[in-house]
Design a protein around this nucleic acid. Structure first.
Lengths: 344, 344
DNA sequence: ATCTATAATGTAAACGATTCAAAAACAAGC
DNA sequence: GCTTGTTTTTGAATCGTTTACATTATAGAT
């Protein structure tokens, strides 16, 4: 049905070896006769609409032609995966690699003996792991022993990791407000007292502090509510806006704080953005999720996915063992704005 | 490196053909001697941790071993794709099929000559198309001519479609409220006057009407705001709650209406759910997105993905040309509740 | 023990690509 | 025109499966 190399070879009156070599661009054909023949072969291939059979190629090359994406399914609102996946796919396609997704549970990582099984079973050339929680060193060792190339996503370590640069992100958001003329700024966030805290919780806060220090400003507040945002954020927001040294701008760890700030401001008759600027981090434009036109620092997940594939492919193709981690920079999205220069 | 059939054949002292047959379960081996040998072969395969090389198998069988997922990238908040993908993957894995995702733009469908190209290029055994807009008949014909099996997701047609049953969903949400004792119910939604309206806009509304009729109740309102929700919903919600025959329960087309209802109720001092029950449709628990604990009719996208793969695989394996469409039923999610019996 | 019908196995040819050694083609120098 | 050295092409082997066909093993009947 589909065109094969043999058909092209016959049509061009050459051997299959030649067609393969020409189509894969091996050997530059310095001689005019060869160059002419190569030209002709390429023409015929195009005319026949030739596509190499990936399965056949992979058999011969001892490849699987696929990579796995392991994500942790425990996080409820795992919407962050989608842009990651889009980034992954956009890079995977030109490399002729296919994707296999597996859901990974926290439980699986806590019974590490299942890991090698997963790696062997899956028949892939490489694995991307998007796992936000802490990974026992025993697991990372087992993974290393499997000799399947691995890249970690959204995890901040020295090697084989790709993650959003939340420290720089925090600085960027803060500088944006400082440049508008704000002097009284606050950062609000939350942390789980006993539970797990993602590195971004601390890094965004530190980035805020760094930018403030750099500008010679003293934060009105740089604080973490204990316990998940949803419960405590409204009260915290209200308290912040009732302070005598009320901030003119707030950087929020994520959308729930932004909503809380907005709501509290509305309740107190404080206008946004005229009297209060709000900027927040989120996986997607906050307006899309909540209806509020909040200036959003969109987490660069798509780029994380892209770079992860790039690194993984390097590891696969060139057998590179360990690669330095790549922090990915944020971009400020102003499609909707809740920031303005301070009124006084 | 990896175990091959030949190694197992040697270890078991039989030929590769026999191993292949045994491992693929061809021939039931009615004779005791054969059965014993088969047992032994399976044991050795297990011991060696044998995994069939999919690439090799696919070459031999003339398969690509992969399916494509084409999604329309034009929809901004395309979070709905994620559960679809999870559903797809959970079914794809046991079938040993890999995935390729392509983003599809509206523009691509409007220049249909690119379609066959996409289909040929992609080297897949089948295609799933998740395209919410109207599809020109010219395109569907081109796709049929390509002879690559296709299943449409979230599209309501007679053949080869899998979609959430929004009519039944509308009935279900409404009956839930009626069973609680509500008599004064409203449905609010929106439609784009000139633009594209998804079938769910009408079906959920019709489902509401159907359930009301069945219960012998007259709707307080069953209306569509013109223009996208975000802009008009708050005003509409306010007007609805200010009516003399104010409803005690509202079914919302999606989360933005629910947020608007909630906010309007708060502004008027109407307590939720004591004085006003709210139920809304959404791709994910509304609490996760907005912080408001709204009872949610979660669109059964995961199941849509699962069924799509099931249908596609039937088409691939059995060469079935056309299959009847499958509407997928909703389930009511009460993890968070904003519904209660009416107070009086 | 022999024969027969049939179940099971062995053998080898595919599938479509890549690649290596060997052969052929080519250009240059004498 | 012949030799030489380099470039290019050819032909065949290979990757790991599956499967059609030929062959052998097997259980039951005689």
């Amino acid at each position: 049905m589909a065109t094969t190399i043999a058909q092209i070879a016959q049509a061009a009156g050459v051997s299959v070896g030649t067609v393969s070599r020409v189509l894969n661009g091996k050997g530059e054909s310095s001689r005019p006769a060869a160059a002419r023949r190569a030209q002709e072969i390429r023409r015929i291939a195009r005319e026949y609409g030739y596509r190499p059979n990936l399965a056949a190629r992979n058999v011969r090359n001892g490849r699987f032609g696929a990579v796995a994406f392991l994500s942790c399914s425990d996080i409820g609102a795992d919407v962050f995966e989608l842009p990651v996946l889009h980034g992954i796919q956009s890079e995977l396609m030109p490399l002729n690699l296919r994707l296999t997704m597996c859901e990974l549970t926290k439980a699986a990582f806590e019974r590490p003996h299942t890991i090698p099984h997963v790696f062997r079973e899956s028949s892939v050339d490489g694995v991307m792991i998007d796992y936000l929680f802490d990974v026992p060193s025993q697991v990372t060792e087992l993974i290393r022993d499997s000799h399947v190339p691995v890249v970690w996503l959204n995890r901040k370590r020295e090697l084989d990791c790709v993650y959003p640069d939340d420290f720089e992100g925090g600085r960027m958001a803060t500088r944006h407000l400082i440049q508008m003329g704000h002097k009284k700024l606050a950062f609000i966030s939350y942390h789980e007292a006993d539970g797990f805290n993602h590195y971004s919780v601390f890094d965004r806060s530190d980035g805020f502090a760094s930018a403030m220090f750099e500008a010679g400003l003293k934060p009105v507040a740089n604080e973490m509510t204990e316990g998940f945002t949803l419960g405590r954020a409204p009260e915290r927001a209200m308290r912040l806006l009732n302070r005598p040294d009320r901030p003119t701008a707030v950087v929020c760890y994520e959308k729930h704080e932004a909503v809380a700030m907005w709501t509290a401001a509305a309740a107190l008759g404080i206008r946004v953005p005229e009297e209060l600027s709000i900027i927040a981090f989120s996986n997607d434009r906050i307006r899309n999720q909540t209806g509020l036109p909040v200036t959003t620092m969109i987490v660069p997940f798509k780029e994380v996915g892209r770079q992860a594939v790039y690194m993984l492919n390097r590891a696969i193709e060139q057998g590179i063992e360990e690669q330095p981690a790549r922090p990915i920079q944020y971009e400020l999205d102003e499609a909707t704005r809740s920031c303005a220069p301070p009124s006084e």
